[in-house]
Amino acid sequence: MEYFLQQTINGITLGAVYGLIAIGYTMVYGIVGMINFAHGEIYMIGAFIAVIAFTLLGMMGVTWVPAAVLIVLVTAMLFTAAYGWAVERIAYRPLRGSFRLAPLISAIGMSIFLQNYVQLLQGARVKSIQPIVTGAIPLIETGHFQVAVTYIQILIVTLTIALMISFSLLITRTRFGRAQRACEQDQTMAALLGIDVDRTISMTFMIGAILAAVAGVMVTLYYGVVDFFIGFQAGIKAFAAAVLGGIGSLPGAMLGGFLIGLVEAYWSAYFSIEYKDIATFSILILVLIFRPSGLLGRPDVEKV
């Protein structure tokens, strides 16, 4: 029982990270109808920027943890957003109206490019940093087993929920959100009504990148290790989360993220850690086959 509780806490933390990345997939899919394959790489870049920023702050002697975390978050969000913008501008925008597979292939190219770009610039070795946020609150203590929730886990989950709420408000309450939803429905009509479609799409990519950057910072804090290849696996899992929740749905992405995180945690705990990725991929495939619209998505009516 204690073990189960601990795994639940771990799973929710992991799920929050997947959920943050999944939102980027879902929003981009909603507006341009394509899978942004390079999104996992954007998350990886966010994590690298976090590592660099933490190291820089450490060298500059900023030691008060809340300030350091805040500065790093803002830096990572800012610079990663620039990557989100550039990816859309270079690899996707010129392809609107091209043939069906073109943006997908271009996105794969972008993903490979970014991976190798980071590898060449930062080296292929795993980067590890000292733990920054330490400490935990013990919840239950039995003789041999302690259930604890660490401060970093609390930070990840609360920050994720706060971001989730603020972005939901952004989409439902603001002018940008209205434009965003309009573009999802019908880009031509939105353009005729004076919405700057290009700008709205760019903004969507930047928001996705910002959330991925937050996920990157959190993972850096949580595990303390980053390498150029982490985007690939995290990308697929977050995509699985987006599909499970129903692609195009923001709450769905979050829900899917938590579910995938929990499945992974329980699977590693009770079955075998080696097969946890296979379990996630199987969920992805099964959901796509049996319920392609996901848990909270709208069914997709084929336009004839």
């Binding site: 690899a91 392809l95 993903s111 490979i112």
Partner: peptide
Amino acid sequence: EFRMLLFGAAMIAIMVWRP
């Protein structure tokens, strides 16, 4: 060393200019 970098870039370039 740049092989993968270049071919990622080439995939994008081909899609943009000669799909």
